[in-house]
C-alpha cells in the first residue's frame, strides 16, 4: 500500500504548527511588533509560486492571462519581502540596552 504524498505534506504542516506554537510563545512581548513584520516578510515566500506562474508564457508571448497574474503577484510579494525585512531590521536596530555612559 502506498501513502499519498498529501499525507506527508499534511504531516509537515501540522508539525510546523506545533513548532510555530512553541517558538512564538517564547518571543518576548516587547518584540511583538517586529514579530508581525517579520512573519509578514516570510509569508511572502509565496513569491516562489508567483515566479512559476509568471513563466507560464512562451517566448513568443511572455504575457498571457495566467502569467500576468504571476507578474502582479511578484510585485506584491517583492514589496512585502523587501519592505518587511528592512522595516524589521530598522526596528530591531532601535532596541538598545541601558548604557552606563548615557546621561
Amino acid at each position: 500500500m502506498e501513502i499519498d504524498p498529501f499525507i506527508f505534506r499534511l504531516s509537515i504542516f501540522i508539525l510546523s504548527i506545533f513548532v510555530g506554537y512553541y517558538v512564538v510563545w517564547s518571543v518576548t512581548p516587547s518584540l511583538h511588533t517586529p514579530l508581525m513584520s517579520v512573519t509578514n516578510a516570510i509569508s511572502s515566500v509565496i513569491i516562489v509560486g508567483a515566479i512559476i506562474a509568471s513563466l507560464a508564457g512562451t517566448n513568443l508571448s511572455v504575457f498571457n492571462q495566467s502569467s500576468i497574474f504571476g507578474f502582479l503577484a511578484i510585485v506584491l510579494a517583492a514589496i512585502n519581502i523587501f519592505g518587511g525585512f528592512l522595516v524589521t531590521q530598522r526596528m530591531l536596530a532601535m532596541y538598545k540596552k541601558k548604557k552606563k555612559d548615557k546621561k
Binding site: P5, F6, R9, I12, F13, I14, S16, I17, V19, G20, Y21, V23, V24, W25, H32, L35, M36, T39, N40, I42, S43, V45, I46, V48, G49, I52
Partner: peptide, 28 residues
Amino acid sequence: AAAGIGFTLENTALIITGALVGSSGAIL
C-alpha cells in the same frame, strides 16, 4: 492563505511558513 497555496503547489517552504505565520498570528 500561504499554507493553502503551499499545498496547491506542493511546496514545503510555503507550507512550513504558512503554518508558522498562522500559529504566530493566532497566538498573538
